[in-house]
Design a protein around this nucleic acid. Structure first.
Lengths: 109, 109
DNA sequence: TTAGACTTGTCAATATTTGACAAATATAAA
DNA sequence: TTTATATTTGTCAAATATTGACAAGTCTAA
């Protein structure tokens, strides 16, 4: 879990004995671009997460966790932001969900 | 800290007695677009954080925390991702910083 | 050396974000 | 009420960013 998302894909891919071209085909992705993704030079596209979970038989929610945590970590690292943002974000997620509940109740009326 | 970034700006703006147009001018931003930002219909652009900190005399790092936490929370909410991603992200930030240290040592040689 | 695997650079196509403006609505003072 | 100002909403072209694709390079193992 402490690796980057690119390293994670590479690990999974080599464990399965796939080449970049083979996995690329499964994910509908150019091997050159997949190489960049594994090397952290491009971002993996969220829309391919579902397919990736299927290919590697992974739990989709755990894969999302892996994917988004990478996104957040990179943002924090690049922007030199405090990791406090992470705990504040947790509060804000609660806030957003709460707003949503209120909204749904209103919509029922 | 439990409000959205848009609500936060609005609170600061009204406390200072600024109109959208007045604050917009200070931030080099159309009043209509600032309105959308405050109402969560557009995103505040990271490049204006510095100026915003100056205008409201805020600590830049704290403002960044406020800004990025909002970003993360929205992502999690929209994508229905587990908040586990936040703690995993913390680990990944450590990992990225560690990699960087190793890289710097290599560059010295 | 050759074939296959991987990497890197580039660029047009596509998608997203932004700035700007007009028009509608809300608010509040005269 | 009318009027002035503040705010909201819709739209759209321009600016940016991302993506897919391909060529050409390096690396590796037989």
């Amino acid at each position: 879990m402490k690796q980057s998302f690119g390293e994670y894909i590479r690990k999974l891919r080599t464990e399965m004995g796939f080449t970049l071209t083979q996995l690329g085909a499964k994910l509908d992705l150019d091997s050159a671009n997949l190489s960049k993704i594994e090397n952290g030079k491009r971002d993996f596209d969220e829309k391919r997460l579902k397919k990736m979970a299927e290919v590697f038989n992974l739990n989709f929610d755990e894969l999302k966790t892996e994917f988004f945590s990478d996104l957040f970590a990179k943002k924090i690292y690049e922007s030199n932001c405090s990791t406090d943002a992470l705990s504040v974000a947790e509060e804000k997620v609660k806030y957003l969900k709460q707003i949503n509940v209120k909204q749904e109740k209103l919509n029922l009326k």
